[in-house]
């Protein structure tokens, strides 16, 4: 069904021309990357799948606005970024109000897939790192996730975020410094507790 010779733009043209079933080609091409992106941003795999689903519905609805300049990836990651940041803002509000009401909704651990066959200790280290990632300021996290997990160049990150390349360099550099510090603290058994409030 997915003819790899067809570019994204050609598939888009086909969908807009009435072959809506061809949209599945785009979903198959990008779903694992979008889910991965959202999962790293939210730290929650189940939420990531549900947000990613909404992202694709939004992509479909906004397809007529895509300018077909061989930059489909930037187009859909802009949508994914907007929806993920909105979700994070909403969650922050929910957590705030639940605290105000004395509830502890936010104490529920975010969902992770069942651990891979790794030994217990490694699983714990992975969880700690996921936690550190989630605690990064959102702009730093966004830039780092696009760089490390999506292997975007700074220029491609600029296309998705609208930030300048120097700003992206600074954000990523700070994110790495912060994570390195967090890991050092964690390995010395002093993982910061205060920052956990940001979750």
């Amino acid at each position: 069904m997915d003819d790899p010779r067809l570019t994204d733009d050609e598939v888009v043209t086909s969908v807009l021309g009435g072959r809506r079933q061809d949209f599945e080609v785009l979903v198959r091409r990008y779903s694992s990357r979008i889910v991965h992106f959202v999962a790293r941003m939210t730290g929650d795999n189940d939420e990531a799948r549900s947000i990613a689903q909404d992202v694709f519905l939004k992509i479909f609805v906004n397809l007529p606005y895509y300018r077909r300049e061989n930059n489909f990836s930037a187009f859909i990651f802009r949508i994914a970024r907007n929806m993920t940041l909105n979700w994070l803002k909403r969650r922050k509000r929910t957590v705030f109000f639940s605290r105000l009401l004395g509830h502890e909704l936010d104490r529920l651990p975010p969902s992770q897939d069942p651990p891979s066959l790794s030994p217990m200790e490694q699983g714990e280290r992975e969880q700690a790192l996921t936690r550190q990632l989630r605690r990064l300021p959102v702009e730093q996290r966004l830039a780092l996730v696009l760089k490390v997990y999506l292997e975007f160049s700074y220029k491609q990150i600029a296309d998705v975020t609208g930030w300048s390349v120097p700003k992206i360099e600074t954000l990523i550099s700070r994110a790495k410094a912060r994570l390195k510090k967090g890991i050092r603290l964690q390995e010395s058994g002093n993982e910061p507790v205060v920052e956990a409030r940001e979750k």
Binding site: V27, S32, N45, N62, E126, L133, V148, Y149
Partner: peptide
């Protein structure tokens, strides 16, 4: 960071998206 396992692939994901698509683009 790269050793963190990615979310497990969900083979039903594309089908679910396709089933939810509205009639036509905006």
């Amino acid at each position: 960071l790269l050793r963190l396992p990615p979310p497990a692939a969900d083979p039903y994901f594309p089908g679910r998206v396709m089933a939810l698509l509205p009639g036509r683009p905006a």
